Computed example of a mutant assay.
Amino acid sequence: MYIPFDRLPPHARLWIYQANRALTETEQAEIKPLLERFATEWSSHGTGLQASARLLHNQFLVLANNESATAASGCSIDKSVSFVQELEQRFGVSFFDRTRLAFLQGEEVKLVGMNEIKEKVASGEIDENTLYFDTLVTNYGELQQAWPRPAGCSWLSRYF
Rank of each mutant, 00 (worst) to 15 (best):
L63S: 02
N58G: 10
G141I: 06
Y17C: 04
I3N: 05
A151R: 01
Y2D: 10
D127Y: 05
L8P: 00
Q59G: 07
K110G: 00
R98Y: 12
W155M: 09
W42R: 00
Q50H: 13
A71G: 00
S123W: 06
L143G: 06
W147E: 05
R90T: 14
S157I: 04
L49R: 00
G141L: 09
N65R: 02
L56E: 04
V109N: 01
Q85S: 10
L61F: 08
F38C: 00
L63E: 06
H11D: 14
L87V: 08
S157A: 15
K118R: 14
L104Y: 07
D97A: 03
S154F: 07
W155F: 14
R149L: 15
N58S: 14
H11I: 13
H45F: 14
A72H: 00
G113E: 14
G113R: 05
A72I: 04
L56K: 14
L131K: 07
S80A: 11
I117V: 15
A53V: 09
K118G: 09
R7V: 02
V62P: 00
T24W: 00
E41I: 06
W15D: 08
A29R: 10
L136M: 13
N115M: 10
L87F: 03
I126D: 05
E125K: 12
I77M: 12
N115H: 11
M1V: 15
V81I: 15
I31N: 00
A69I: 14
T26N: 13
V112A: 02
L87Y: 05
N20S: 12
F96K: 06
E125V: 07
R21M: 11
T40L: 03
L23P: 00
K110W: 10
Q50V: 06
T40C: 07
G46N: 07
L63M: 06
V93T: 06
C75V: 01
E119T: 15
S43T: 05
D6A: 13
I117M: 14
G46Y: 10
G48I: 10
Q145G: 14
H57L: 14
V93C: 13
A22D: 13
L8W: 08
W42C: 06
F91M: 10
N20C: 09
M114V: 11
